[in-house]
Nucleic acid binder design. Structure first.
Lengths: 246, 246
DNA sequence: CAAGTCAACTTGTTCTGACATTAAGACTTT
DNA sequence: AAAGTCTTAATGTCAGAACAAGTTGACTTG
């Protein structure tokens, strides 16, 4: 059976060939052309069908295996796992996540200051003593409903910012415009019960469950850009992810 | 400066060369030989120093970039990000995590049955109507202190199990012995407040915060092996992870 | 007929080689 | 002296080839 996925490769495109293959197979899986559990042709045939070399084909399949869409087994072949694999947790801001899903988030800046960082923040952001940082807290709402209460500390040598900017857009887009290329983040997810302040801000009952996230983001030059402590209403937000065994 | 990392490659080892390089560089970073922020020699020189080809060297560095230890920038070079990057969330069981950290977990089986799966479970595990599954709930303690309350549904065509087995070891080790090679899992992390039952089992106050996790695990043949709903005491457990931008 | 053996198939690893793209600094020119 | 340009160096992409190592099923043999 010629498992022609109906995908074509544009060699004049600036998009790398292996990435075109990734997108094509992703589309085939999500559209149902490739059903969960079905076997793909072997790497060599697939490469030949698309006029690609095997290393290029393999690199594409590597990415799909890593993202959890495909499963490979030596001596056997490659299978589609499931079309309903969730997107892995991405290195993006809450604001981006929401707008990408068609939501219209609003941001209210509750406090804003440009101050000398305390010792803990200096250590986390790996800044020399006496450095100043932006410190602010924001309330994010979707459809008028409070979703998240966010407190952040950001180094001040990237982009200057003020309350108005933070009200109008997401923190990450401001920083990206300042030339930051985010590369990785470490985060910790846990839970707490809402104290009086959190409850009032999030329009929730005191003692209700909140999801907490602490995150520190690093850019491609190794600079620690920002750290934050966020809390989310547990009835409106949870973290979904796909873990892949290496 | 010859950035010789003092690592050597054993070509007679069954461990792939690229993986030996990964382990060597990881060790160099964690031991402090490679300091955070320092630049590595370029790929071609490094490959030459170890008598490897550039693709092999690149594949090793790819993995380190993905795991967040290194940062690459075209036209510039490769840098060490930080020695204190946390291990990414791994596809492992709580039991393994605890024993690997030197803890001695105990497990109490609260209920156990071998029943026909309900529709929701059939759908999640992608089983035909009428299939039977193991359904059980367990309480896990560390140092005599309750940590997690776990309810699981497991397909029954892998390994037979009973209360005694589940008391003595982790679910994943039983399944692995039954020939399962776990490949990926999708999970969702959130929060709730403890109800009366959860509070009493976890020795916590009613209304205290709990971290929730729902997980479905898939093996290397695409079978959906088990799904579970776990709750953890928020004061004793949180999820740490490293996100890497592709 | 059952058990072991072997051949075919598929992914896993590794190599050599080439060119493209980006970034930074040195150089030249105005 | 400042601006733009060019060179250099590094990572990014792609090709073609070869062999290694599991898996599976067919075949052979006792």
């Amino acid at each position: 059976m010629a498992n022609n996925l109906g995908l074509s490769i544009d060699r004049s495109s600036p998009v790398p060939l292996y990435h075109q293959v990734v997108q094509g197979i992703e589309a085939a899986i999500h559209s149902g052309v490739l059903e969960p559990g079905s076997r793909l042709d072997n790497e060599i045939d697939l490469a030949a069908q698309l006029n690609l070399s095997r290393p290029t084909m393999r690199k594409a399949m590597d990415e799909l295996v890593r993202s959890g869409l495909l499963v490979r087994k030596r001596g056997v072949g490659t299978q589609v796992v499931s079309s309903q694999v969730r997107r892995p947790l991405e290195l993006s801001s809450l604001y981006d996540d929401l707008t990408n899903n068609g939501k219209k988030p609003t941001t209210e800046v509750l406090s804003f200051s440009h101050i000398e960082a305390d010792d803990a923040t200096l250590a986390i952001l790996q800044l020399p003593a006496g450095s100043k940082v932006y410190h602010f807290s924001r309330l994010r709402k979707v459809g008028g409903k409070p979703l998240a209460l966010m407190e952040n500390w950001v180094r001040d040598d990237i982009a200057s910012m003020d309350e108005a900017m933070l009200s109008a857009e997401g923190l990450y887009s401001i920083l990206r415009r300042g030339g930051v290329n985010f590369r990785l983040a470490t985060q910790r997810i846990g839970a707490v019960t809402a104290n009086e302040y959190q409850a009032s801000m999030l329009d929730a009952a005191e003692g209700s469950a909140l999801v907490t996230m602490e995150r520190t983001a690093v850019d491609d030059t190794g600079r620690h850009i920002e750290t934050g402590h966020h809390v989310y209403r547990a009835d409106s937000y949870s973290f979904e992810m796909t873990l892949v065994q290496r």
